[in-house]
């Protein structure tokens, strides 16, 4: 899993927002479409795509997309 690939997959989950200004260091809650449902979507995407379980709390504690990436990366190496 590269940082870039994760970032791509993360953005792929959004369907209606203008993502042109979003970088991996952006705050994901600033994306218009963000909602508690999107948290579930990201959790499910990480599980399906990377085989890693993250929790609602992991998302809650994260601010930027990179924060979420770091949780996934840490868990990926721990496996």
């Amino acid at each position: 899993m590269t940082e870039n690939y994760f970032f791509e997959k993360f953005l792929e989950q959004f369907e209606e927002s203008d993502l042109s200004q979003i970088t991996i260091d952006s705050e994901f809650r600033s994306i218009e479409e963000w909602s508690s449902m999107m948290a579930l979507v990201i959790i499910a995407m990480v599980d399906e795509e990377f085989g890693i379980t993250i929790t609602g709390d992991d998302i809650r504690k994260s601010v930027t997309i990179r924060d979420v990436y770091n949780v996934v990366a840490a868990r990926k190496t721990a496996v």
Partner: peptide
């Protein structure tokens, strides 16, 4: 115990 829900939610 549902990992997807936070206490805040």
């Amino acid at each position: 115990n549902n990992p997807n829900l936070t206490n805040e939610d």
